[in-house]
Amino acid sequence: VQTVGQWLESIGLPQYENHLMANGFDNVQFMGSNVMEDQDLLEIGILNSGHRQRILQAIQLL
């Protein structure tokens, strides 16, 4: 089972590990259960829309 940090590294966005972990997104399986939306990522400080889309697309593959 991948950690959130390993998963972010695999999609090329390791800089957001602290954003996700500090806001309770600390379990890759949980994130894959379709609980995260674009607005959630924006609210936790991921401002780059391309990065948000990449995260959301990768979540669909979990």
Rank of each mutant, 00 (worst) to 15 (best):
Q29S: 12
Q15G: 03
M21L: 09
S10M: 10
H51P: 00
L47P: 06
L47W: 08
V35A: 14
P14N: 06
E9S: 10
G12Q: 05
I11R: 02
L47R: 12
A22V: 09
Q6N: 10
I11D: 03
Y16Q: 03
I44G: 02
D26L: 09
L42Y: 10
D38F: 01
N48P: 05
Q57D: 14
R54G: 03
H51L: 01
L8W: 02
S49Y: 12
Q6I: 05
L61Q: 15
G45S: 03
L13S: 02
L47D: 13
H51D: 07
G12I: 00
Q57S: 12
Q39P: 06
V28Q: 05
N18A: 13
Q15L: 02
A58N: 09
M31A: 09
D38K: 02
L42S: 08
I11N: 02
V35E: 10
L61M: 11
L20H: 03
E17R: 08
L42D: 04
L47Y: 11
D38P: 05
M31T: 08
W7F: 14
L20I: 04
L41Q: 01
M31V: 12
S10P: 03
D26R: 12
G32P: 11
E9Y: 07
M21N: 06
I44F: 09
D26M: 11
N27H: 07
L13C: 04
I11H: 03
Q29G: 13
H19Q: 13
L20F: 15
V35C: 11
V28D: 06
R52W: 04
N34A: 13
E37R: 14
I59T: 09
W7H: 04
V35P: 13
G50D: 14
G32S: 14
W7G: 02
N18H: 13
V4D: 00
Q60M: 08
M21V: 15
M31W: 08
G5P: 08
S49H: 14
M36Q: 10
V28M: 14
V35I: 15
M36C: 12
Q29I: 10
G12C: 04
Y16R: 00
I11T: 04
V4K: 00
L47C: 11
I11L: 10
I46G: 03
L61A: 15
V4Q: 01
G12E: 05
H19M: 15
Q57A: 11
Q15F: 04
V28K: 05
P14A: 08
S10R: 08
N18V: 12
L62H: 05
A22L: 10
E37A: 11
S49G: 11
L41R: 00
H51V: 03
I44E: 01
G24D: 04
N18Q: 15
V35F: 12
D26V: 12
I59N: 06
L47K: 13
I59E: 04
H51E: 05
I55H: 02
I59Q: 11
E37L: 11
G24P: 02
G32Y: 15
L8K: 00
Q15A: 03
W7A: 02
L47S: 14
D38M: 03
N23I: 13
N48E: 10
I44Y: 07
D40P: 02
G32R: 15
I59V: 14
Q15T: 00
Q57M: 09
N23V: 10
Q6K: 13
D38E: 14
V28W: 09
E43T: 10
M36N: 09
D26I: 08
V1R: 10
E9A: 13
I44K: 03
G45C: 01
E17P: 01
R52Y: 00
A58G: 12
E9H: 13
V28P: 08
Q39K: 15
E17I: 09
W7D: 00
S33H: 12
Q57V: 06
Q57G: 11
L20T: 01
E9Q: 08
V28L: 15
Q29R: 12
Y16H: 02
D40T: 14
Q6C: 08
N27D: 13
T3D: 07
L47F: 12
L42Q: 14
N23Y: 08
S33Q: 14
N34K: 14
E43R: 15
A22I: 08
M21Q: 04
A58C: 07
L41F: 05
Y16E: 01
S10T: 11
H19W: 05
W7C: 02
L13W: 04
Q39A: 14
L42G: 01
S33M: 11
D38S: 07
G5L: 12
D26A: 10
E43S: 13
I11E: 00
F30E: 15
D38L: 01
Y16D: 01
S10I: 06
D26Q: 10
E43W: 05
G12H: 02
N48H: 12
F30Q: 15
G5R: 14
M36T: 14
G32Q: 14
L47V: 14
S10G: 09
E43D: 14
N27M: 13
S49N: 08
N48C: 07
L13M: 06
M31L: 15
R52G: 01
Q57P: 00
G12M: 03
A58P: 05
H51T: 03
Q6E: 13
L47M: 14
I11G: 01
Q53V: 09
L8N: 02
H19F: 08
E17G: 05
I46C: 03
